[in-house]
Design a binder for these strands. Structure first.
Lengths: 116, 116
DNA sequence: TGGATGATCAACTAATCAGTTGATCAAGCG
DNA sequence: CGCTTGATCAACTGATTAGTTGATCATCCA
């Protein structure tokens, strides 16, 4: 296993970006389609600057991209970036699950042995 | 879609726990089997107290559990907690991917129309 | 009992983060 | 050109985080 996969600073930014309910709500909204800062800011009891900062965090983390439409700069969710995160988690989740299954099997064998 | 799924404070803690290379390395190590604080601390240029704090963050986030073996308190990775995170991400990733496919199909139809 | 070991608690510092206000930039419109 | 609107930049405050040192707790063992 490469050490990079845990020391990668882009994972720092991506997971940190998800560690905030406002940013998760932004992602949930963007999964239903692109939106501008004003549209994204509307549901929140927060200034537009505040939301803009959150969006910058998401963009720096690579989770969203921006386009240009006149004055507006719509945000788009990037599914590929999200997949990189699930891929990281699954690497270790599946390894741990595999271990658990082996352990269960081992315990079962010992139980059978005890009966005899 | 429930609003809780983005405002859940346990997701805050879990994603924040992953937003640190030391803690990700601990998870990578624990995916290969349980380990004590001393064992986990060994590879790091950090005090044991520092590593112990990271472990507490992981435990509070629900990503690991502790058991008791005499003096030792081994850490175990919890695959179920990891799966909750991939499940959250996948909800929005799949939705966004589905949108992208629809958009691609739409563009393709317009291209065909232009030819005629 | 008394010492060694695994691990945590408490207090402190330096750095980072969330949110605000006020100013600024850039594009559209009369 | 002037004015409005979408969005960002800059500076600042309060809260949280990462890491340290020193002390304490709990368990094992001679």
């Amino acid at each position: 296993m490469s050490t990079e996969s845990v020391a990668d600073a882009s994972l720092d930014r991506a997971f940190l970006a998800l560690a905030d309910p406002v940013r998760r709500a932004l992602i949930a909204r963007l999964s239903r389609g692109a939106a501008t800062v004003n549209e994204l800011a509307e549901p929140f009891a927060m200034t537009k600057q505040g939301v803009s900062k959150h969006i910058q965090v998401l963009e720096t983390a690579g989770l969203i991209t921006r386009s240009r439409n006149g004055q507006q700069r719509p945000c788009h969710l990037d599914p590929v970036a999200l997949e990189a995160l699930t891929a990281w988690i699954d690497t270790y989740r599946l390894e741990a699950e595999s271990r658990f299954r082996q352990l269960d099997a081992l315990l079962k064998i010992n139980e059978e042995g005890d009966k005899q």
